[in-house]
Amino acid sequence: MAISLSKGQKVDLTKTNPGLTKVIVGLGWDTNKYDGGKDFDLDASVFLLNASGKAASEKDFIFYNNPQNSNGSVVHSGDNRTGAGDGDDEVIKVDLSAVPQEAEKISFCITIHEAQERKQSFGQVSNAYARIVNEATGEEVIRYDLGEDFSVETAIVVGELYRHSGEWKFSAVGAGYKDGLAGLVKDFGLA
């Protein structure tokens, strides 16, 4: 049974699941009724961060146009342009045993493509979640439902996998950015 987290909570991942090395991080969302005439395109992205919370290079920014990091330990499944249907909208596979040692954190984010131009924000998004699944068994081990407490934000740091005493943990972050992807890129040292 999956552990359900609230914003700010942290939980052991590998310590409580011995032998777990390959996980699937599923991100999903729905859009509320929207009459702006433009499609609503949300995108998952991942940043591999060093001890100072920065990405060492562009290769540590994984998204639909750069679907994996240098050694292939973090792989993005591809862009879902509509978010239609049930289940995960975008998926990232992570081989925890192969993540480069200098990567202390793996930050999972959702952004709205062309949010400013389309006048869209996370105030128009509902049922956003992140879940971690054991790739070998298909079992959901962690779930974080973001709730509806966003308004003008155009990017969200959903959660982070991070190293702690030789184990991997997950933190439910739920931090919104009104500067979209540009704000994330800048904060993570790539701008």
Rank of each mutant, 00 (worst) to 15 (best):
M1R: 05
S4D: 10
K7E: 12
Q9L: 00
D12Q: 14
D12A: 15
L13Y: 09
L13F: 13
L13A: 04
T14W: 11
K15F: 12
N17W: 10
T21E: 14
T21R: 11
T21V: 12
I24L: 14
I24Y: 02
V25F: 12
G26W: 06
L27A: 07
D30S: 13
N32V: 13
G36L: 12
G37A: 09
G37V: 10
K38L: 11
K38V: 13
D39G: 08
D39M: 03
F40K: 03
D41G: 04
L42M: 15
D43A: 07
D43G: 04
A44V: 15
L49A: 12
N50W: 03
G53H: 03
K54Q: 13
A55Q: 03
A55R: 01
S57V: 03
E58G: 04
K59C: 01
F63G: 02
Y64P: 00
Y64Q: 00
N66Q: 15
N69P: 02
N71Y: 07
S73I: 08
V75N: 09
D79G: 03
N80C: 08
G83N: 01
A84N: 12
G85L: 08
D86K: 05
D88K: 02
E90R: 00
E90G: 03
V91S: 06
L96E: 04
A98W: 01
V99Y: 06
V99S: 03
P100T: 01
Q101S: 05
A103V: 05
C109K: 00
T111N: 14
H113Y: 15
E114R: 14
E114W: 03
S121F: 10
Q124N: 12
N127D: 15
N127I: 06
A128E: 07
A128M: 15
A130D: 01
I132T: 13
V133F: 11
E135C: 01
A136D: 15
A136G: 04
D145Q: 09
G147L: 06
V152A: 11
G159P: 06
L161E: 02
L161C: 03
L161F: 15
R163E: 10
H164T: 04
S165M: 08
E167P: 00
W168D: 05
S171F: 10
S171Q: 12
A172T: 08
V173I: 15
V173S: 10
V173M: 11
G174K: 02
G174A: 11
D179G: 05
G180P: 09
L181M: 14
A182M: 09
A182L: 12
L184D: 10
D187W: 09
D187N: 14
L190T: 05
